[in-house]
């Protein structure tokens, strides 16, 4: 294979993986704090629209990505108000958030369909040569750095420890004086912001234009990735690269005329997720020595603050 083609495949893989890494990383932090937000798809699509609209309106990518992050964070906080302040059911609220996001972005976005936001500068604009540089961008690099940052935050900082404590046992964390609700609201804002950024990557870098429902299920894949990764940032990265890699490789294998069924390849990431779930459910049982592959113990539970 010519090196240009390999570089193209690797760059394509990273492009496909970036929105997944962003959204999954955000959701990972949210779930680590003990909240299950199924509204990732809704937050992503809002980010995709908000970022696109801001770019068309202001012409600035900086403002566009900031707007997308803020819009996603606002969605995350809305979910927080519903589930942390008003104590509504997290699963139902998350599904509602997805429907709300899809509907709201379609409503506002109807007039933006068909507009163009221009091409996002790739690394070759910095003078780097080759097909790889022409297919990669700064957001992608920042995303990779963010994986390390989140892992460091969760495992090596006091704030990360508090966040995990809140997610493992919110009553105990509350009893020793940690602000459970505030920690969770902050996590939700972060999760929403990352989902919004992932959506904006799709509408400003990957495609780049806006059409309603353009996230096409990536929010759900991000949710599956968090489980697949057993709540560990580097596994999120691996899972997203695997998923993006399989998507891109199966497209390329078809172009080369290899006789592998596209449908079977498309199924692989989901099969892998199911396999991981089975392994986890075995290891997570009472008396099992391995606690590493376990969901945060307070995940999805309602915190009333009275215990």
């Amino acid at each position: 294979m010519p090196s240009d083609l390999i570089a193209g495949i690797v760059a394509g893989l990273l492009v496909a993986a970036t929105p997944l890494i962003l959204a999954a990383l955000g959701e990972l932090v949210v779930e680590k704090s003990g909240v299950l937000n199924l509204g990732v798809e809704g937050m992503m699509v809002i980010g995709a629209y908000a970022g696109f609209a801001a770019k068309v309106g202001t012409g600035s990518y900086g403002l566009a990505f900031t707007t997308a992050i803020l819009a996603g964070a606002a969605m995350g906080l809305l979910f927080g108000v519903l589930t942390q302040q008003l104590l509504s059911n997290q699963v139902a609220s998350g599904l509602a958030l997805t429907l709300f996001g899809l509907g709201l972005s379609a409503l506002f976005g109807a007039k933006s369909t068909g507009l163009t936001a221009g091409a996002f500068p790739r690394l070759d604009a910095l003078g780097l040569p080759g097909r790889f540089a022409s297919g990669t961008d700064v957001i992608m690099l920042a995303t990779l750095a963010l994986v390390f940052a989140v892992a460091y935050f969760l495992e090596r900082t006091r704030a990360g420890l508090v966040l995990r404590a809140v997610g493992e046992n919110h009553d105990a964390a509350h009893a020793i004086g940690y602000p459970v609700v505030a920690v969770r609201m902050a996590a939700l804002a972060f999760g929403g912001g990352m989902a919004g950024l992932g959506g904006a990557y799709l509408s400003l870098v990957q495609t780049p234009f806006w059409v309603e429902r353009m996230t096409a299920g990536r929010g759900w894949i991000a949710l599956a990735l968090v489980v697949f990764a057993a709540w560990q940032p580097f596994r999120v990265l691996a899972g997203a690269l695997l998923f993006g890699g399989i998507t891109i490789l199966q497209l390329h294998s078809q172009g080369f005329g290899l006789k592998i069924d596209a449908q079977i390849l498309s199924m692989l990431p989901y099969l892998a997720t199911i396999a991981v779930l089975i392994v986890m459910s075995r290891q997570g049982r009472v008396g099992s020595s391995s606690r590493r592959l376990r969901a945060p113990q307070s995940l999805g539970k309602v915190f009333t603050g009275t215990a």
């Binding site: 394509g12 495609t207 429902r213 096409a216 497209l251 390329h252």
Partner: peptide, 25 residues
């Protein structure tokens, strides 16, 4: 002709990825 099946009617991201794969080839 090079043909790539994407198993969807509507997924802008995947359609774009497929176009990129074709162009790279």
């Amino acid at each position: 002709m090079k043909i790539i099946w994407v198993s969807t009617w509507f997924d802008p991201g995947k359609e774009s990825d497929a176009a990129k794969a074709l162009a790279d080839q």
